[in-house]
Amino acid sequence: MDTAILATLALYMLSTAGYLAYFFLQKNRLQQAGLALLMAGFLSHTAVIGIGFAQKGHIPVSNLPETLSFAGWAVAGAFLVLHTRYNLKVLGVYATPFVALVMAIVPLIPKTPAETPAVFKSFWLVAHVTAIFLGEAAFALAAGAGLLYLIQDDAIRTKRSRFFFKRLPSLELLDATGYACIVVGFCLLTLGLITGLVYAKSYWGRFWSWDPKEVWSGIAWLFYAVLLHGRLTVGWRGRRSAISASVCCCSRFWG
């Protein structure tokens, strides 16, 4: 099991190297290699999680390393989907190191034995956890797109950094990608919250118990709701919305 995780990590790191080299040298082959490695890493990662599921009989998110691993898997998967949809190669420069970093932490954390397996056996919980994690992954990518937007905006505005100017795509594309990620993330988060409420009701007998995790999720949901509402009504976009998306995502990961 550990060797499989290490193999996955190695693939992600190589993929990161491929994307970084592509960013500096601008050779398409490097990007293709990076993508292929990422796919290989994602497959082996899927296998790791699948095995975990089979062994424990529930979704493997009962301790911190497992949770992190699942989050990394979600981000890798979300990026692959986004890549096929938008062909935004350059976002890999953000996504692959992100995933590699998350996975690098996994083997370092001592495993605390899981105590409450009974809680994890419900369908609602699996739906809840998966939706929440995929939603977070989408938000993480939105933050990445926002970050790239800010760099490109700065490059165009200050007229100095031709390095980034040449390598990054148009502001419009970065903005549209970030927006799409937030919409998807928001839908998934909503779904995750609903399934979570249903699950809480069925297990603890009440919908909401003011648990800090719940509160954080609620705040994040409200925040993204405001962000989307602002965009739809008065067209919030550009620097400010990119900053908000990035900041919000960072705070989520702290939570």
């Binding site: 165009i156 100017f165 795509p169 148009s170 502001l171 419009e172 594309l173």
Partner: peptide
Amino acid sequence: EMARKIFGT
């Protein structure tokens, strides 16, 4: 060229 970096198309 600059316009295309801002607007895409």
